[in-house]
Design a protein around this nucleic acid. Structure first.
Lengths: 291, 291
DNA sequence: CCTCTGATGTGAAGATTTGCACATGAGGGC
DNA sequence: GCCCTCATGTGCAAATCTTCACATCAGAGG
């Protein structure tokens, strides 16, 4: 059965009883209908209809086909309805991936977005490995660093996350706070263990003597924990630091410290209402994360 | 959803994950598959797949389609199996129509044929009105008289039903029997009420004085009842007369009395195994009905 | 009885679909 | 690191399918 269109044609003929009627419904010429039927009967080796001058009447085989094709027609109609609706509405799954750092900021946004769209299921993926948009693993990715340049991805600038230097009360009581940058050499800092291309990290290594970077971590979460514990002065996103009452801002955020974030979507999904709707929502919510 | 073939293409792509694989299975070029998908997505306004260099992965919409199309594919496969089997096997209905006269002879044949084909349902239609093969009312018709000449019907000569003259015991005891044709003028006969073109009836009216045809009936069954009741000498098919023990053959069957019978089938059904099988069976069984 | 309408059926022209060739790109294995 | 394989994607020619025009036929209605 390798031609579903012919089944569809036969279905309409069986339903309506005439070739001409079926041709009208299908929007094709009646000759086409006749040829479809002939072809189908030839392939199946069964007569589906008895031909007479007043129309086609279905044989037993034709009636059997009618029943099967009727349900198919119904199911396809339902499917088309669902699919067309899905294209224009915000339902189903929305899969977001980002660096784990952004989780505290993103979580309330995702929760609010889902609250606006009750039929939506949010999947928020963070992890060490990069989730690949190309394979449908996510609808939207938030990436840091230099602009990704993969061909099938739609990349747009998001925000520059405001970063500032913070010290915990424990540190302040023990070592005091630097009044300005010139006193940094007399203080202890928290930095990345490995040399990264992150702007604030480069700035840190250029400004502070390497021996003053006394607490080094491998990931952002550990870095945050170190700052909060008073292991040294360290960089934190402003939005994160605001969550702790025991932190004092040592220096206000500067643009040159922050790496740009990028919103990345797959080109196939970028135009969908679901993705567009979320992007708009996200950008509005992120306005005050900016430097 | 006005192109089931495109759904079928999308189904194979969703199932296999690659355009090339789907193209192989479908027996078309991969470019065709791509265009089908593009067309379908365009019509539905939804992305069914995310394209990447290693293949196509289905979106939620694509997975939805996959589920629906999978059942469709299964059902069509089953249907094709049933239909193809039906073309080559003797199952379903077999609808026969004939003059009511033939019922006594036909019934045992139909019973035996059905016994050979347990999946067959026999519908034997007799009645005043002619059942029309063109409208699918019957698979096989047995007609009397001159050869029917409708274009869509396949007509083949069947048999000439052996007719003979019979008298019942009641008649014989009261009037005796004619020794030969010359004594017919002294006997009473049973004939058709209206002038028919049936050969035996024409012969009767030419041979026997009209006033000797004293019992006239409108249909064959009444004619038979009249003969059996001894209302006069009358024509009966030999096969029918044999069923009665109280009948004496007044004159043996003659070819010129009998009208030819014809087997008629609709051209669309004539080549099917069911019809062919029945025709063969019927002709074998009818060999001894012949004149 | 005759016409008129609305069916099916078929050969030829036209339009759409398909197939082909080639380009491009991503992984896997040596 | 490089090649080799196997994907997708696209312009153009070819083949198929569709449409058109016309023929035929059955039945309804005067």
């Amino acid at each position: 059965m390798d031609s579903w269109d012919e089944v569809r044609t036969a279905f309409q003929v069986a339903r309506l009883g005439t070739v001409s009627g079926a041709a009208d419904v299908l929007g094709v010429h009646h000759a086409t209908v006749i040829r479809h039927i002939d072809a189908l009967e030839g392939k199946l080796g069964v007569k589906l209809f008895q031909r007479h001058a007043r129309g086609y009447t279905a044989t037993e085989a034709g009636n059997d086909l009618l029943l099967v094709a009727q349900t198919t027609d119904d199911q396809f109609a339902q499917l088309a309805g669902r699919l067309r609706g899905r294209g224009a509405s915000v339902t189903g799954e929305l899969v977001i991936t980002s660096l784990a750092t952004l989780s505290p900021m993103l979580a309330p946004v995702l929760a609010a977005f889902r609250a606006e769209h009750p039929e939506l299921t949010v999947r928020y993926l963070t992890g060490d490995r990069l989730f690949r948009l190309e394979y449908g693993e996510a609808h939207v990715a938030i990436r840091a660093g230099t602009a990704p340049e993969q061909p099938d991805n739609v990349v747009q600038p998001f925000i520059r996350q405001a970063l500032a230097l913070y010290a915990a009360d424990f540190y302040k009581e023990r070592y005091g706070l630097p009044k300005d940058e010139s006193e940094f050499k007399d203080h202890y800092f928290i930095g990345h263990d490995t040399e990264t291309r992150a702007p604030f990290n480069i700035w840190l290594r250029e400004t502070v003597p390497i021996e003053n970077i006394v607490y080094r971590t491998a990931d952002n979460r550990s870095n945050e924990d170190g700052v909060v514990a008073g292991a040294g002065i360290g960089f934190l996103p402003v939005k994160i630091a605001e969550r702790y009452s025991n932190l004092t801002q040592v220096a206000p955020p500067r643009p040159e410290w922050s790496a740009p974030l990028w919103l990345v979507t797959h080109v196939d999904l970028h135009r969908t209402a679901k993705v567009q709707s979320f992007l708009t929502f996200l950008k509005a919510a992120a306005r005050d994360w900016e430097v």
